[in-house]
Simulated scan of single mutants.
Amino acid sequence: MKLPAPLIEGRLMRRYKRFLADVRLPDGSEVIAHCPNTGSMLGCQPEDARVWLSTSDNPKRKLKYTWELVETAPGEVACINTARPNAQAREAIENGNVPELAAYQTCRAEVRYGTEKSRIDLHLSCHEYHPDAWVEVKNVTLCEDGQGFFPDAVTTRGQKHLRELMAQARAGERAVLFFVVNHTGINSVRPADHIDSVYGVLLREAKAAGVELLAYRAGLSGPQGPDGDISLGEAVPVVLDA
């Protein structure tokens, strides 16, 4: 999966009002970029960090630039655009790059399900003799010493998704929590018990109930820095021990 080309490099001045970021371009000019991430972005907005923006020529858009990538530490890059992970996961599954989910022929997005009136990110089906797979996608960008953590803030919505997935697993369907690891420095994923202890408890309950946990990391880097390719490639482990 490729980000819109070309990506424009700049330096992060500040993020504010959740949806806005001031960025200084190499020529010294300053622009306002749309920040497509309503979360805490913990660890992903260091002052004066190198960032990369995509551009749009759509005259109906208020802002020309969209913040896509950030260098969180020397040589480590994260994709902060939360509109990307679902498409990344779907592309990887449909291209056969996720062996655990390679048997399915049909993929639909945003399908209603569950007693709590949720929408599943991806619903996979094949034939009547093969259980459907209900896939919830989560974006992982919080990195601490090579360890990825999710979530990066308390998430009651994420807790609800785990309850819905457990119900599907108990009903005999395949339920999958798919972590899209959008940070090149992350080597494994674990629940952020220090941020949302309830989510950590539910995640372990979900695993015990038969929910499958998958994590795949995006490439993000080219020879001279990010080249805009955010395809998923390498699987990384999900660690649940305390």
Rank of each mutant, 00 (worst) to 15 (best):
P6C: 10
A103F: 13
F19Y: 13
E110I: 01
C79N: 05
A133V: 15
N58Q: 04
L203A: 10
C126L: 06
P6Y: 15
P59M: 02
P4V: 03
Y65W: 12
A175F: 15
R14V: 13
N86A: 11
H127S: 05
D193G: 10
H127I: 02
T106K: 10
N139F: 00
G75T: 02
R108S: 03
P151G: 06
P85V: 06
R163Y: 07
V31H: 05
H123W: 08
L25H: 09
S40A: 14
M166N: 07
Y104T: 01
R217Y: 05
E100F: 02
G225A: 05
V176M: 04
L177V: 10
G114M: 08
L232I: 14
A89T: 14
N81W: 15
A33C: 08
V154D: 09
A208F: 14
A171L: 04
R18C: 09
P99K: 02
E76M: 12
E144N: 05
F19E: 09
A83E: 03
P223L: 08
Y65N: 10
V236E: 09
I120S: 01
T66L: 11
L101E: 03
A175D: 14
G114H: 02
V238H: 04
R14W: 01
L101R: 00
P36H: 08
N37Y: 01
R50W: 07
C143G: 12
Y129Q: 13
L202M: 06
E144Q: 09
F19L: 10
L240C: 14
F150V: 00
